[in-house]
Amino acid sequence: MRNKKISVGKTVKKRNPLKDWQLYLFLVIPVIYIIIFKYVPMGGLVIAFKDYKVRKGIWGSDWVGFENFVRFLSSYEFGRAVKNTLSLSIYSIVASFPFPIIFALVINSVRSEKFKKVTQTIVTMPHFISTVVLVGILFSVFHCRTGLYGNLLHTITGEYPDDLFASASNFRHFYIWSGVWQGFGWGSIIYTAALSGVDPTYHEAAQLDGASRIQRIVYVDLPAIVPTIITMLILRMGNVMSIGFEKVYLMQNSLNLSVSQTISTYVYKVGLSGGRSGDFSYATAIGLFNNVIEFFLVIIVNKISKTVSETSLW
């Protein structure tokens, strides 16, 4: 035991940095890249506390303190954007979390390798469809006149239905379920991998004791993937404030704005959609507000999971 400790200590002994100059040489480009493209923009965050004017530049503009934040927090858009962001996020977690797990559990009990392979290939494929194309498919297939949806209802009822995308109440369902459609197969890979690591002797022992297939899933398979499930859930919970811009923006129209205006689309609308006249400072403040909350969420969630389940991200 003691010997082992010493030898471990030996292998991690740091070398003289001068001897490693070639290794540091490798790091020069990545470090410069990270500084310019990740840390320099963080410096640009000061404009959240300023009244940024393009001709005055970042440092020449006047300080305004927390004015931009106060303005956002007291605006009508604040409540709406936060509420929409959180609802989309939580709905998405609830709806999309179980499917990969269920799929992994059932596909794991299939004995035919060929059937397994073919179905897995098919269900993972939509992962590679771009967001633009996914939304395009959604719009085309559910088009009220020319799409599959319109045709189906026309055949049944003899009339064309109303436009589904013109109604705000449908936005969330379309957003979430198209995401489930696209992602559940890909999401199941990680669980399938965890399941393939289950020692087959556990199953044999359970079988000898007379356990049915369902009992084996509940008492053998499920416990084996619980750590993976928890880790994935933590990752997901930490990102609860970040709903990607792309898909929401693509699905957004003037009729569903009441449920589709999220923090990220609002930042874009305030800052960039009006061209050069955009209110950069205000938009930066909103973005910063969001990122700070997100940052602490990840840290808190990680801390909780560390104490509860001993799994953490770092």
């Binding site: 990545p30 470090v31 990270i34 493209f37 990740k38 840390y39 320099v40 923009p41 963080m42 410096g43 640009g44 965050l45 404009i47 970042i58 811009f245 990220s264 930042v267 874009y268 800052g271 960039l272 950069f280 938009a283 930066t284 973005g287 910063l288 969001n290 990122n291 940052f295 990840v298 840290i299 770092w314």
Partner: peptide
């Protein structure tokens, strides 16, 4: 230094200005 950038990013507008 590298992994901090995964947790916190400057956001759309400072990026655009850069």
């Amino acid at each position: 230094f590298f992994s901090f950038t995964m947790l916190f990013s400057a956001g759309t507008i400072p990026y655009y200005i850069l």
